[in-house]
Structures are given as C-alpha cells and as structure tokens.
Design a binder for these strands. Sequence first.
DNA 1: CGATGTATCCATGGATACCATCATCCCAGC
DNA 2: GCTGGGATGATGGTATCCATGGATACATCG
Lengths: 233, 233
Amino acid sequence: MDTIIPAPQGFSGHTADYVVQAIRQGILDGSLPAHQPLRQDRIADTLGVSKVPVREALIQLKAEGLVTFTPNRGAVVSELSAAEAVEIYTMRIALELAALRIALPRLDRARLIRAESVLSILEQEETRAQWGRLNWEFHQTLYQASGMPRMVETIRALHDNVGRYLLIYLADPQYRRASNEEHRRILQACRDRDSTAALEQLRVHLEAASRELAAFLEKPRAERTMGGSDHVG
Amino acid sequence: MDTIIPAPQGFSGHTADYVVQAIRQGILDGSLPAHQPLRQDRIADTLGVSKVPVREALIQLKAEGLVTFTPNRGAVVSELSAAEAVEIYTMRIALELAALRIALPRLDRARLIRAESVLSILEQEETRAQWGRLNWEFHQTLYQASGMPRMVETIRALHDNVGRYLLIYLADPQYRRASNEEHRRILQACRDRDSTAALEQLRVHLEAASRELAAFLEKPRAERTMGGSDHVG
DNA sequence: CGATGTATCCATGGATACCATCATCCCAGC
DNA sequence: GCTGGGATGATGGTATCCATGGATACATCG
C-alpha cells in the first residue's frame, strides 16, 4: 500500500470506487497478502481521502469476497480455504460454461482475433504481475459476447478471488504450459464453432486449476512455496 | 418505509446490516416499488440512525443489484428489464442445478421433512407477503445440503432480484398451482434419489418462471396488472 | 515463576456538523 | 412559449468527536 500513488485526480465517479480499485489491485498483485489488516485511517491517509469512502470501499470488497470483517477489529485481506476454493470453482464452472454456451454463436471475427491476440501476449509474458490480468482478459473476451454483463461481472468477482493463488500455480512452467495449451484448445473449438468441444475444454481447464489450487491450499501454510522470483525461465 | 419501527435496539452487529434488512424487506414485499428514490437522511431519520450507515447499506444493496445509483442523484429501487430477467434466470439455472446436484446425495431425512413442511405451508398460504419468503425457504433448504454457503448466498441474491415480480406471476391461481406441482415433483425426485429427474424438474420450474417473467416485463408498464389485492381465491 | 487482574492504548463504528457540487424547479423576462 | 438564472434540496465528501471493545504491557498474587 505504501507504494500506491495518492492520486485521486482525474478520477470521475465515487471516491469509494477509486479506493476499491487501489485495494483490489494490491490484493490481486500480491502486495497485500492474506490476513493483512486494512486500517481505515492509514488507507485514507495514503490515498488522500477521508475515512468514510474507505469504509464504503471495504464494504464493496467484502461483497466481492476479497476482504473479511471482524466486528470491532476491522477488515483484513481474505484467506481462502481449500473448501472455499473448490466452491468458487464449482460456481465458476457452472457460470462460465453457461456464459460460453450463450456466447459461442455470437462470437464474431473481431472478437476471436482479439482473444487470439491476448493469448499470444499471455504466452510470451514473463512477468507474473500481468498473468492474472491477461488470463482474465482472454476469458472475458469470450464471455462478453453472451451479452450478459451481470453474469460476466459475477464471474470476474469469482476469478479475482482465486487470482492471487492462480499466480502461484502458474509459476510452475509445467502448469503454465498446460494452461496455455488448454487456452489454445478452447479458442480453436470456438473458431470451429464446435460447441461441445469448447465447453468440454473449458471444463477441463477449470477443473485442472481447481484441482491444483485445492491441493496447494490443503498443504499447511509453512510448506507452501509461494514462488519467490518475478521471473521464470 | 414510514411504517417501519425505528427500533435498532437488540440488534447486534453493524448498524448498516440493520438498515440493509429494513430496506431489503421493503423492496421484497413491494412497499418500496421500482424507481422509488431512497433518500439518505429520510431513511436515517426513520430508522433512527445517522447518514453514514445508510450509505453503507445502500452500497451493499447496490452490490446485490436491488438498488441503482446515479451520480449526484442518489439511489433508487432497481427496475428489471426483460433482458436482465432472462440473464438472472440463466445464472440461477446454472447455479441452482449445480447446487442441487451436489446437495442431492447429502440430503438427509431431516432436511427432506423440513422441505416438505415448508411446501405444505406455502401451498396453504393465502397471503402474498409470505410467498416469496417461503418459496426461497424451500429452495434454500435443498441447496444448503451442498455445504457451499457462498453459492447459496449468491443464489439468494439472484432470487431476491426477481422476488418482487415473482409475486405478480404467482398471483394467477393457474400459475400458482403449476408452481406448487413443480415443487412437489422436485421434492419427490429428491426423495427417490433420482438425480436426473430432480435436476430436470428444477430446470423446468425455473424456465417456466423465466418465460412468464420475461413475457410480463416485455409488456409496456401501463398494461401490467400488478395484482391489486393481498388475497386470492 | 506462572497465572491472573488491571491500566492503558488504539482502532473501529458511529454521530454530528459542515461544505462544495450538481440537479431540479420555478419564475421572471423576452 | 421559450429561455436563463437564482432558490432549493440532495448527494457526496471532509473533519471532528466519542463510546465501545480488543490487545498489550505491566503489576500483583498464588
């Protein structure tokens, strides 16, 4: 949080939304680790706002599941249990398969090209910080064609909840390669308008991630290797 | 809102949660109709709290989709378009089928009896005000056996978004009878541990509601008969 | 030396007062 | 009849104050 620039200028909309963005980004890129206390006046000072919009932001993030409140003790960054991870992936599989099924017949050339382009960047990206964003960008590009913004938004919130841990999983080059291949198969099936194959590949993709994340979270915290470096290779 | 007793006494937890409950109830039972402005200081006075927790409550309800914000104009009760209704039911079908599939093998005797009891009350209930609550109570009883609280909570929020309109749909005795029969078929399939039938009946149930609600919302507002009386028969 | 009680500190959660900004409405003036 | 410009009122945000309860350090007692 210290490094976040206190720059609310040029921001339209509610101040709370600005605070939400700042905190969310900190959680997603790992600079705000699980159990990190989120002190209201400290955040207010850092971002150059007052306490009220900070509390409003924390409440929004609570609704997304990214922070957890304890009465009279304030908010901390949420920790995910293995069971919760499985639950989130269960919801993601249900919703993302539905979204893709609806989106498939509406995927136009432009969108497929865009998905292809995101995927190429993702495959060559060596910096962990961008993986989560690009990964979501790829999936979102497909789902948006469903014309169901609320469903896409719900899926995004679920994705954000596992985003931090996904980075750890992707730090292993083997899993990263597998993930990229799964993305390619999904995209190819979309190009072929092969609905059955696309949905099946998406299911495989999500189930693999669910399995690996659950296995990771079932290990005691001490044994977990969080992937130290910003570069792999 | 005028009739709500300003009685925060005996309420543990955050004041905002108390305000959320009050406003949510007003929206669900129809006393706060769509497009009703939700004035912050008026609500604060009525409930005997200050403005701050009211704004926090409105933000929570925004996250649930029950209220809509317009910059510098505050919050109003959300209105649902036909497209949004279809979107919500698409999400409900995806999530509720997944929840029921997981819950089915874990449904014990006690829970089935509880569901049966809720259904009996619902079938004999003549007062509209309770229909929404009892309807959700029935579905929730089944889904809770999944052991996935977050999924159940997400489904509840989606249910609340269509709850108001469901009442109109159920005001027609014909649809009400059909709905009750669908509930019975779902419950019977659960008792028989017939997973395929239970999921299929749930899908039929939700798709029927989706179809009727979409048809209702596609009519111009002037033509809509909102079902005047509190009693049918 | 360990367990328990106590004083202090500190952050939360909420109330209150105040203010800039923006939307809306009403009305004069053309 | 249309337009422009105050009143008016609500939002959204700041600053300040305070009661409550958790946490910690310390002191006292067994």
